[in-house]
Write a protein that binds this DNA or RNA. Structure first.
Lengths: 191, 191, 191, 191
DNA sequence: GATGAATGAGCTTTCATTCAT
DNA sequence: AATGAATGAAAGCTCATTCAT
């Protein structure tokens, strides 16, 4: 395996603390202590506290992208693909609530370098953009401005994950899950 | 008037800097310098840096609430009321981009005391909750779980303001504005 | 007065400690403690530990230059002017042993930025260069390369101050003082 | 041979870095990296960073002493012996500029233990002291205090090497070399 | 001999806050 | 009300040194 145990422990602890207390409120000493390593060890693996945050951000983004890639190409029916993508992305968020919260907190914050944030956004939004464009050509999705639809999808995804993370038991209920998809799809659907 | 020039200068500068750099990255010395006052003056008007943030948060929330109150009661038609509320809220955001960004950044952040954040959220979401409940009773709005719909409305509002603040010229185009409302309304509409 | 008491206390203490222990061995905490101020006060007056060193270096250089300026123009006789300059410079060093030691330690060290060091060197060596050139024109001083003579004068000055600072009582003896000037002058004198 | 390649690489690199950046500014990690060895290797060969500095200092001192020993005894003429010693010492410095710079920087610095420095100084100044004393007995050298003359010789040697290391091409010119010796000798010569 | 991940004491620097003026 | 020099706890980070491999 390529990541040492100590490095992984630092990453896990940093994720938990950054989400629970915020970046600036979390001291490197606290991360090290709770990860069971010396303060110097943190800086042996990451050049700075900022670099640790960036690494966390990029690797979580990658993990998410890996999880949902392919979920939107399985069917010949576009709506089925959209549904698969939606539930695949939501499932990942519900299964990784800490990582989802991390994303929610830091994907908009000035704490992370804009260039890194934008790159991450675009990579992930790429999936949805492709899907929307295909849907518009097939006349299934309304002809609204693409930028607006992107932001809208993103906003709805954040809202849905927020809801299911705050109420995990509702994720078990078919009608709640279905409701979340309908909110998402009906907004965009051609009328 | 009750707020001195210096106090107002501090508030304006703090808003700009908190949005541009984040709360922890902005020093009280920087706020004071850029506001043209001495460092001590800031603490003459606000008990602490946190108190300044809270004051900013609550007064902006109040300003927003004042701006949209009443916009959802003007018609007897629910959809018209929803449209009015939607455009009224968006208009305020577009007219006050800094304050909207501030809200976007801090209404979720652990930097502000949870009790203050929740109170603010509920006050503002109250408008929408009332509207949704009425719509469901009239059979105009789908019978999805109320919490999910609240989160969804909030997410769509954030997404739309994000879009129009990033592309201010599109706010002038009727079809873009209309598209934003359709995305919002059609998602929730009974089918 | 333009320099506050605390700033002066920091400068005095830093001079003493930098000479006694060296720059890197002296902590800013030690300077502050011994100067009777808080650690923050040091950084209120100087941007960094390095800036403190630079300030010390440049102000001592200025003090020295002020002390010897004019000493080489009082007579019409060149050798008399040289003697006056020599004893004036030596007197300053004997009267300010700490500052002389500081100069000796840091005017060659990579700790201080080269540009600052060179500027300081040239300012002070300007006096001697003028004198040597005049002496060569009058046929009193040998026609050796000017750069070599500059370095030589500097080296002899450092050696003489070293000697008299290490043996202060010898500075009281006319023959020792005279010997130091003869070593200096006879080396350069035309033969 | 007794010194391994890695140990020698460490010594060479340390010499270069200590001269270029100073002792405290040079990290053991930097030495190891630039020498192409692991950090642990440095401590396998030297007990500590200080021990490395001391080793460097003493071995360079020894090298210098070996180079000039014997150069002052070849003739029956004292001035000839002095000239030989002067040029021999200068030649070594010009041929080993890094080592000379190292000496210049560290033979006065509090970084090296005083006892080691003094011992080194005396060993080397022994040559010159003997020569001066003989010269005074023969009436060739002025009767100035011996300590003053020692410091003066040392200062002139440092000045001359400084000059020729900074202007290597001048070392090729007979008149520059001769001038350096005249400055040295005429200062001390009986009048 | 050689490696380099790990250590943790100790450093410089920051910054919200105070208070005498 | 306003000032800004002064404070000192606390932060991020460094680096000589160790030791299991």
């Amino acid at each position: 395996m390529s990541i040492t145990d100590k490095k992984q422990a630092i990453l896990d602890t940093a994720l938990a603390l950054f989400v629970a207390q915020g970046f600036h409120t979390t001291t490197t000493a606290a991360i090290a202590r709770q990860a069971g390593v010396a303060t110097g060890t943190l800086f042996h693996h990451f050049a700075s506290k900022d670099a640790l945050l960036d690494y966390l951000f990029l690797s979580i983004k990658q993990e998410f992208a890996d999880a949902i890639v392919g979920s939107a190409n399985q069917s010949t029916d576009l709506k089925t693909n959209a549904r698969n993508l939606w539930f695949c992305a939501l499932s990942w968020a519900i299964a990784n609530p800490l990582k989802q919260e991390f994303f929610q907190l830091y994907s908009m914050s000035p704490t992370i370098d804009p260039s890194i944030r934008f790159q991450a956004m675009n990579t992930i939004l790429g999936f949805i953009t492709t899907l929307i464009a295909a849907g518009q050509q097939q006349g299934l999705i309304a002809d609204y401005p693409i930028g607006l639809m992107q932001d809208n999808c993103h906003g709805q995804y954040l809202a849905a994950t927020r809801y299911f993370i705050d109420h995990p038991q509702h994720w078990q209920l078919d009608e709640h899950r279905e409701a979340s998809f309908k909110l998402f799809w009906n907004g965009m659907a051609a009328t």
